[in-house]
Amino acid sequence: MTQLIEHRYATTVHPLPAVFLAGTLPMFLGAALADAAYAKTFHIQWNNFASWLVVGGLVFGAIALIFAIVDLFRARQRARGIIPYAVVLLAAWIVGIFNALMHARDAWASMPAGLILSVVAVVLTCLAIWLGFRTPHIRGPI
Rank of each mutant, 00 (worst) to 15 (best):
E6C: 08
H7K: 13
H7Y: 08
R8G: 12
R8I: 10
Y9D: 14
Y9N: 15
A10C: 05
A10P: 02
A10S: 10
T11M: 15
T12L: 14
V13H: 00
V13G: 03
V13Q: 04
V13R: 08
V13I: 05
V13L: 15
H14Q: 11
H14G: 13
L16K: 09
L16G: 03
L16C: 06
L16P: 08
L16I: 15
P17R: 01
A18Q: 05
A18H: 06
A18R: 09
V19D: 07
V19F: 14
F20W: 12
F20N: 08
F20I: 09
F20R: 06
L21W: 12
A22Q: 08
A22G: 15
A22F: 13
T24G: 10
T24V: 05
P26W: 07
M27F: 09
M27E: 09
L29C: 02
L29V: 07
L29Y: 13
L29D: 00
L29M: 07
L29S: 09
G30Q: 09
A31F: 01
A31R: 02
A31C: 02
A32F: 06
A32Y: 03
L33M: 14
L33A: 02
L33P: 08
A34D: 10
A34H: 02
D35N: 09
D35A: 11
A36V: 01
A36W: 01
A36I: 04
A36N: 06
A36R: 05
A36Y: 07
A36P: 03
A37W: 01
A37P: 04
A37R: 05
A39C: 08
A39K: 02
A39D: 00
A39Y: 03
K40P: 00
T41N: 09
F42P: 00
F42A: 14
